[in-house]
Nucleic acid binder design. Structure first.
Lengths: 210, 210
DNA sequence: GCGTGTGAACCTCTTCACAGCG
DNA sequence: CGCTGTGAAGAGGTTCACACGC
């Protein structure tokens, strides 16, 4: 076990293991092997063991990993398990769909609030939640504690939106906006890039032999 | 220049360069350097040059890359530029939001059709497009040619949905469904995993010094 | 015997540094 | 002189193979 800096890839796979373990738990299975997790997550068993070994020794030699306790450990590492707040900025199509879809079975996330710059929308209800003006951001974050913000605003509004979030004390952002966004040190920003995923798929259709 | 098998990471970055170049073009800029693309895409200039060198020599030494011709080359490599058809399976929240959002400025993609298993929804209009029954899949794909399918169906319906897509001749799928999906050789499948992105952000909030 | 945890080999990707061309 | 294209060095991640504990 060597807790230095951990790669994003390892963390991403931990998320997959967690998802798999939650599903396995519902099947009543109590113990799993690294081989089992590997098959279901599409990697090698050695990879699974290496990922887990970074954080500790969670397995029992000869048998495998206890589903419940391994899941608890992974959730502790990811900071999930306990309910966590996700807020949405932008009550357009995507924002609305996210709130409607919810975050069931994800490790305790919940959409806790939604904001929009458009005064027309403010005060209206979106999926059972009142759409708040951006001026309420700071207060909401103070109340909720650590939050992850998902931004789903129009192209061109991304940077201003990020600025307000950072200003209000948010330091984890997931963006559906594709503009390159500037963030200060210490703030984490990730993108959901549907068009890039399409490009990768498109390229695969170009390959020889089709 | 060495066209062997190209890594997904390189293709993903080509997608970023293309997006950046489209934006640059609208600013009237005709020539860019690897350093310029690097800054805007958050990598090193050597990385940019290496990525491009895989496919040819697109630059002019001493000046840089011609925006229009580099973009054309990248779009040719990705198979974008010419209009391409994207179909959506599942007219729920996400499917609806995707169609409403459209795919403007992405390299020529268009949502060309939407399907749903629910007879209640079939025949209704979603963002200006008639919701079709799954039985129309084969015919639609035959008509459209190569398509990329985005699946946004309920949990538990993913595999059946994929089966029908593959059966109908689709071999590029982007899934919002998180179940592990089985696909035959030759079919490309990718996932959009919002909850995993949240997990990665959540983990970053756990790191020391916050 | 079985499956974990782990050093070592292997492979891939990134960064460096510079020759060479415009 | 400036910037590309590229071999060489370096860093990082994955696979292999096996000792060890249950």
């Amino acid at each position: 076990m060597t807790v230095g800096k951990v790669s994003e890839r390892t963390i991403r796979r931990l998320s997959h293991y967690a998802r798999c373990l939650r599903h396995t738990r519902t099947e009543g299975k109590k113990i799993v092997t690294s081989e089992y997790l590997a098959k279901r997550c599409g990697i090698s068993s050695a990879g699974v063991r290496k990922d887990l070994a970074v954080f500790g020794e969670f397995g029992k030699q000869g048998s495998g990993y206890d589903v419940q306790s391994l899941l608890a450990n992974i959730e502790r590492i990811l900071g999930t398990g306990k309910p966590s707040h996700v807020i949405v900025i932008g009550a357009g199509n995507i924002g609305h769909a996210l709130l409607e879809s919810g975050l069931e079975g994800t490790g305790g996330y919940n959409y806790s609030a939604i904001f929009d710059t458009d005064p027309e929308k403010q005060g209206k209800i979106c999926a059972g939640t009142v759409i708040q003006p951006m001026t309420e951001l700071r207060e909401a974050i103070k109340e909720l504690g650590d939050v992850i913000a998902v931004i789903a605003v129009s192209d061109g509004e991304g940077q201003e939106c990020v600025n307000q979030l950072v200003e209000a004390g948010c330091n984890a952002i997931l963006s559906f906006v594709l503009e390159p966004l500037d963030i200060p040190e210490g703030v984490e920003l990730r993108y959901i890039e549907i068009s890039t995923e399409l490009d990768i798929l498109s390229h695969s259709l170009m390959l020889p032999g089709r």
